[in-house]
Every structure is written in C-alpha cells, then in structure tokens.
Design a protein around this nucleic acid. Structure first.
Lengths: 386, 386
DNA sequence: GTTAAAATGTTCCCGCAGAAAACATATACC
DNA sequence: GGTATATGTTTTCTGCGGGAACATTTTAAC
C-alpha cells in the first residue's frame, strides 16, 4: 500500500504527465496480457481473468485481439481434472522473435530468440582481432540471412545488440567500449541499416541482468544487484524497484569501477583500487590452487557486496562469470563476511546466488530489450518478416 | 523514445499487472492535474490543456471535480495582454495540508505544510535527552492541537515522520535509529493513535531529498544522489529515474556507510573506513582552519562522489549539512578531483550542488510523502479537519 | 465606437472500453 | 443421465474523453 507511494514516481514537475485516454486503457490491458504470457508461460484465460481482475468478457476480447495480431495462440486446455468448462490456454507464438547480437573481443554472435525466451537459432564467428562496428554489422546481416533461410516464416520485432562498454542513454551510441576499441559509434544506425530493422543498443551487463530477471535466477525479484566477471572486466547492473538502473547518461551500474581498496593498484580507467582490478580473472587464475589467495579474493568480493548492499539494499545479489565461480568455491567465506559487514539488522540476510542462464544469457537479455516495445504496446509495434 | 523502455518496469512476472479500467483513466488524469499545480504552481486551464494533451472540455470537467473535492480553487486570470478570452488560473488550496514530524536527538519539531509546499505553522521543543517514541508522539499531539487552534479550518491529508535511522519498507517500523535509541518501534501506529490520522514513517535523508526534488535544488532532475552531513552522521538518498531508491527492505541509500578507506577507522556500525567516520562533523570542525586537513577531507568527499557516480550516473549530486559547507569552501578541489576520478567521458561532467531549502527541508519532504497518496488519487483520499 | 479575430469556456453528442448479466458450453460428480 | 460448477459468448449499460458548435471575453483593426 504505502510502500508503492514511498518510491513512486510523481508524474509531473517540469513536464506535466500526458493525459490518459480510453485507448491507453486498451493498450495497457493488451500489454498486461502479453507480458503475463511472455513471462508466466502459457496461462489459461481463467487465470488471466483472476490475475488482472478484469472481466471475463474483457479478457475474451483482449485475447482475441492479441490472436488477430498474430502474437498469441489459443490451445485446447490441458486436462486439469477440475470441475467446470475447461479454460483455453493462451501461449505466445513462437514465430514471433527478435534478433540479438553480441559482438565481443573474440567472437561475434547473433541469435534469433522467440518471444517465449527460446533461442531458435544462432550463428557464431570467432575472430582474431576485436571486430569493428562494420564487421559486426556485416556479420549480423549475413547471419540473419542464414537464419531467415533456416527458419521460414519468422516475424521479427527488431534487433538488439549487447555491447561490452558504455552505451549512451539514447540506446544507440556506443560511447566507449575499450575492449572492442569502439568509441562514439552510432551502432544503432549501422546495424539498423544492415538489417533494415529497428535496433536498440545496450550494455551487456544490463542485458545479462535483464535475462536473469526474465527467465533466470532473478525471476520475480525486483531489487537485484548483478555482478559479472568476464575477460573484459567486471560488468555490473542493478534492478531497482522493478526497473533497470540506467543513470542520467546511461552509464549507471558500473560496479566494476567501485573503489574497493584505497591503496590498490591502478586500473585501466585511471583510478586506483577498482573492484575489477583487485579481483580480476588473472588473479583468480593465479590463485586457483592457493587457498589463502582465494580467501583474500573472496573477502574482496564480500566487501564489494557489502558496499553495494548498503547502497541498494537488494533482495538478491547475482554473481556471474568468474565471480560466480569464486563464489562457488568460497561460498561460506563470502556469506559469512557479507553477514559480518552487513549494515542491516543481522536477522535479515540478503540472498546471494549464481546466475542461472548459461551461454544464451546475453542473447536472451538483448532480445528481451527488443521485445520491450512490443510488450508495452502490442498493437502498435509492427512485425516484419525476416 | 527507446530510453523509456530501457528502464521501464515490465508489469508482470510473478504477479500479473492489474487490469486498467475507465475509472483508472479518470484517476490518472485527476492525479496529473493536481500534481501539475502542486509542483508547477498555479497554472491556467489553457496551460493544462496544452501540457496534458487533453481536450478543453475534459480539462474543464476535471478541474471542476478537483474544485468540488476542495483541492483547488480557480481565480480570475491575471492580465496577460494576449488576445483571446483569458484563462482561469488553477491553484492548489492552501488549507489542504499535511503534518510533518521530525524527532531528532536534540529537538522535536512538528509543522503543518500546505499542499503548495508552504510551511503554515511549526512547533519546536528542545530536549535534553533523545526523545522516546512516546515522547515524540505526545509532543506531536500537543503541537497539533496548538496548530489546529492557530489555523482554523485546516483540512489534513495525514501525517508523516522523518526519522534519522533505518525505516522498514512498510513505512511504519523504525528498525534502528541509533542516535535516538529507537529499535523495532512501530512508530506509525503510535503516531496514528496520537493524531488519529493516517501516518507514514520514513528515513530523514529520503525525505530531505524528496523536498529538494519537489521545491529545491533538484527540481525537475530525475537522477539525483543526495548526501547530507549532520550530527547523527551522513544520510544518503537517491532518486533513480524519477523514483526514490528504496531497496528491498527500505534500507537503500545508506551512503554514509559506503567504504571509502580500506584501512580506515572503525565505524559505529562495526565496519571500517565508512564515509561517515572518515568525514565526520568533528573532523571537519577540527580542520576548520587547517588548509591541508580540509584538503584531505575534500578529497575524501570527492572520492565518495566519484564512487557514487559510477554506480548511479546521476544528473546531480546534492550536498547538504556539513558536506555542503565543506563543498562551499573547497568547491574547486572537489570538482577537480571528481572530474579526475570520473569514469564517464570527461566531456560530460556531473553537476554538484548545495541543497537549497533550509531548516524547513525535512518538514516539507515529510509532508510531500504524506501528500503522495492524495496526489496519486485525488478523489480517493479523504481529508480530515484538524 | 464598432467590428473582426483570437483564445478559451461550455454544452451536447458520439465512440470506445470495460462491467455486468443472461445465456451457452464443457467438464466432474453422483 | 442429471446436476453443480466453471468458463466462454453475447448483449446491454455506464463512464470517460473527443470533437463540434456555440458562448464568452479579450485584443486589434478600422
């Protein structure tokens, strides 16, 4: 009740909130239904009626419209054994998809991901040198053609790219991706031209968290801190009250550059004692069979988590990549240190967990980002044959 | 365009979003209008029409309803010199108010704040020892009676308390307010019983930022980090994409306990090198005429700001209390250090500013919190004669 | 001073969205 | 096979905003 108001965005200020009309209502309800079957898997009409609080007749009309838009199908109900007329099952259509691109230092990957989160097809190319934006766009075009041949009849909502680096708030410009060597590139335009599709570009850690939130270890949790250790450093992202932390310019969540040791080593970013320098892949490899060294690294991780906890008070801290691996081998130590350092009353421990999705995480997360527009306005976003 | 989707909360997941009905539309539009005149000051009907995009006739009906609810009044238009029929001016009514309570170590204060942000009346009592919750509630009752006599005809939406300590996400329980010695107190119930009003309880730093956002130095900015130095330590709060950072349990934004020196002193919270220990009021006092010592403290502040920037990427960092004072005397040093440490591309500097509201900040912020329910549903929240 | 133009308020009617009720249908249970 | 139960379907109703026509109030032009 009151809690929602505690964090609620108050509409106006400089700009007055747009007025709402009847068609907003319709859009909102279509969005609620499509979103529900997107995340919740197949749901019966009856469940949708109960969950939304809308009338049976209204649900009927909405589902019909979603079906006419080609977004969902209705199956005969599974035998439930319950009394009463069986309810039709509403499923998102698997031929509705998004393209997801992940250019990285050693490979480029493109996948087609269905609206139910399934990866339908993927193409991967290893590269010797980090790809240029043009390389990435060219690969995307070729891979998309192959996938189009493989999966006939796919209807695509757009494409999204998960880039390891800073992406501006416009979801278009790669401001600085040091490991790729991209700086100030309007990759959205490049990719959109190559694919002739609407494109959004985002930070890879953000998309990783998005995927885990939608279909992985953070399902249903709405306050999450995410830390992912990879060859290109530590990527961070946060979900705050059900919304992705973005920041004013799009650079929020860079927890890899949180200062964790004031007398630490110089980081590639120019500062000292950054988490991603104190706790990097090489140090972890070097400590692989050195118990004491592993303990030190685990303590560093715990200190970082404690710091993030007092800033974000998350319900869940999600660890991926080599940080997840470190957590696996030093779970007791990390948990204990975090509890010891925890600012909160000790009874209320914070959950720490490993990521659940494997190698498809970024593809799924990027696709999620591409689907966002459709989920928000199912009748307003056109689907394109791939 | 795409930016909104980048952070947008996707409705469903475990719980499907409630369906929307026509009366939601009405509620939304009433809310938009009341919110607009609340923050934007008096506005003409014509301006409301333009800003909301709603029809003239609709605005007419909505304003009439708000007037009938006793929330706004319409004045004759000021002479504008423009051609055409003059538009009526819509103002929030000043006799609509909220009570705001601030119990602190050395004093208790209660104020009546009008919906336009004006502090109509206040009562303050100095105390020798920190007040108990019962003391605070008793004072609130007495002060409220006095104010009721002073301001006849006031209609009150409720009361809010700004407490220096951890407040649970239920907006009721003071989990731990170390300086007051309150632990696990349901202060909402206590105060609601004393005042016979709906009550919300919140953290003082959160309410301080809320006030600055509504009427102070953070107006119209929707990504803000707030640091306030006071006798009871450093309070922190953040506004993330137009929403107050709250955290899973309500303990988010405790930036005073961010680790800023790994070999620092032990903090009262049990950890080492917390910002509020490394940069506390005594150290600042002691450094008052010691340039080198001030430089060190300013550098500490800059390091904290840089750390928060890479986590939140705020549009504005707002400094209050002794941190504001320190910033005033070492502005150049802090700005330079922050720019040097900034993770973002150097061209995009982050604004740092002092708080603008004075001693009324917490009263205004708490009142804002109390008004939130009314602003969200103008027709659904009853007003009570004080 | 009268008239025209412009901007806004007001009134009335329309279309759209969801609610509610009546009816139809499909299952389980007896 | 009959009944209770749950759900889908159809029809009717209400509420809300849009839009057009009209009324009102001002400035500007002559």
């Amino acid at each position: 009740m009151g809690d929602d108001l505690a964090s609620a965005a108050v509409p106006a200020h400089t700009s007055v909130a747009r007025g709402s009309r009847n068609d907003n209502t319709r859009r909102h309800n279509l969005s609620s239904l499509l979103t529900a079957v997107h995340y919740g898997g197949p749901l019966t009409r009856a469940q949708l009626t109960r969950d939304t609080g809308l009338n049976r007749s209204t649900i009927g009309g909405l589902v019909t419209e979603l079906a006419q838009l080609g977004l969902v199908v209705e199956d005969a109900a599974a035998e439930t054994g319950a009394v009463g007329r069986p309810s039709l099952i509403v499923r998102p259509r698997r031929d509705v998809a998004a393209l997801a691109l992940h250019p990285d230092v050693d490979a480029i990957e493109l996948g087609a991901v269905a609206i139910d989160g399934t990866v339908l097809a993927r193409r991967r190319a290893s590269v010797d040198a980090p790809p240029t934006p043009q390389d990435a766009a060219a690969f995307a075009w070729e891979a998309a053609r192959e996938i189009a041949d493989e999966l006939a009849g796919l209807r695509v909502v757009g494409a999204a790219a998960a880039v390891p680096g800073l992406v501006a708030v416009d979801s278009a410009t790669v401001v600085d991706a040091p490991h790729l060597g991209w700086r100030g590139v309007d990759f959205r335009e490049l990719l959109a031209e190559a694919l002739t599709l609407p494109v959004v570009v985002g930070n890879d850690a953000n998309m990783g968290l998005r995927a885990e939130w939608s279909f992985g270890a953070a399902r249903g949790v709405d306050t999450v801190v995410y830390l992912n250790g990879s060859a290109s450093g530590i990527g961070g992202a946060a979900l705050v009250g059900g919304r992705m932390l973005r920041g004013g310019r799009g650079y929020g969540g860079e927890f890899g550059h949180m200062m964790i040791r004031s007398d630490g080593d110089r980081c590639s970013c120019g500062r000292f004692g950054c988490l991603e320098t104190e706790l990097n892949a090489e140090r972890l490899d070097a400590a692989a069979h050195d118990d004491a060294a592993l303990d030190v690294l685990a303590a560093t991780l715990a200190a970082a988590i404690a710091n993030l906890e007092c800033a974000f008070d998350p319900d869940l801290v999600l660890l991926g990549g080599y940080l997840g691996a470190l957590y696996d081998v030093r779970r007791g130590l990390v948990d204990a240190r975090v509890a010891e350092l925890a600012f909160r009353p000790e009874a209320e421990d914070v959950a720490i967990a490993r990521t659940a999705l494997g190698g498809n995480r970024l593809l799924i997360g990027a696709a999620e980002r591409a689907f966002a527009a459709l989920l928000q306005d199912p009748a307003g976003v056109p689907l394109v044959a791939l």
